[in-house]
């Protein structure tokens, strides 16, 4: 059935807009990549065609790894992201489970409170938070960000998990309780295993949020040894007076890779988490 006319129609409705979208969304990543492997004489010359690399080099990557604290920043970022993700998913589970499945006094107030903490934007909290962290004498420690990131991760994860917990049929849990399982056992052995996709969604989302966090890290981590990748890249690799773009792009690209890998393995869970708030199942 698809003749030349069918192909033209499909090109207009699908291939052309799709190609435009992909170019617009992915061009900055392409630009990061080729900038990071161009030698300086190509980067800073107005005469050479910039869209491709003529003589690729790994010099910027070597400089980045040997001359800056990039590896330390990467270690800090991963440590903070893993710790805060695990802690946040556990605490969010403990919040979401009773709210989704049990009846008790105060449930409505807690549910509204959780939603409110999710919607309070960070710029409203960072100034008082900086004073609190100073008074706790936690400035320039990773503990400062480990304590503050969960304020962003827990409300979202709890909200996401409530939807999953509600979907487990009550009868399954009741059967286990009749067989003598305690409430805690019914939760850990019946409901949680059935909600593995939800726990994964919450985990992946929290991990990407933790890797993306900028404001608290900027305020609390002023020493190079404790910085995370986004802060290190923006505050230390941007140097006004010298040519630094190759190294900067190498840092930006390497810093994006952990998130991109995790995301590519669990893209469906990520999308499920993204749409859970807006689309009802």
């Amino acid at each position: 059935m698809i003749g030349p006319q069918g192909f033209l129609a499909r090109a207009r409705a699908l291939y052309l807009p799709l190609a435009l979208l992909l170019v617009a969304m992915l061009f900055p990543f392409y630009w990061m990549l080729i900038t990071s492997i161009k030698p300086n004489r190509e980067l800073y010359s107005a005469k050479i065609m910039p869209l491709v690399v003529h003589q690729p080099t790994l010099k910027h990557y070597i400089d980045l790894l040997y001359e800056t604290n990039f590896l330390t920043w990467t270690y800090n970022t991963m440590l903070v992201a893993v710790v805060t993700t695990l802690a946040s998913v556990v605490i969010a589970t403990m919040i979401a489970y009773p709210l989704a499945r049990l009846r008790f006094p105060g449930a409505a107030v807690v549910a509204i409170g959780i939603a409110a903490t999710y919607l309070v934007p960070q710029p409203l909290l960072f100034i008082p938070m900086s004073d609190i962290i100073n008074r706790l004498e936690l400035g320039n420690t990773l503990t400062a960000v480990m304590l503050t990131y969960p304020t962003l991760l827990i409300p979202f994860s709890a909200w996401l998990l409530m939807g999953y917990f509600k979907s487990v049929p009550r009868e399954l849990e009741e059967a286990a309780r009749i067989d003598g399982a305690s409430r805690f056992q019914a939760m850990t052995r019946i409901v949680l295993p059935l909600c593995t996709p939800g726990l994964l969604s919450a985990g992946i989302f929290s991990f990407t949020l933790a890797q993306n966090e900028f404001l608290y890290a900027l305020i609390f981590l002023a020493k190079s040894e404790v910085r995370t990748v986004p802060i290190g890249v923006v505050t230390e690799l941007i140097r006004g007076d010298v040519f630094y773009w190759g190294q900067l792009m190498a840092g930006a690209l390497l810093g994006s890779i952990p998130v991109a890998i995790i995301y590519s393995f669990f893209v469906d869970y990520y999308v499920a988490g993204l749409t859970a708030g807006a689309v009802k199942n």
Binding site: M25, F29, N212, V234, S256, A260
Partner: peptide, 15 residues
């Protein structure tokens, strides 16, 4: 297409 949303914003902004 979702990549711009998941990559750390500070890093893509540098690009």
């Amino acid at each position: 297409l979702l990549l711009p949303f998941i990559v750390p914003t500070a890093l893509s902004t540098v690009a």
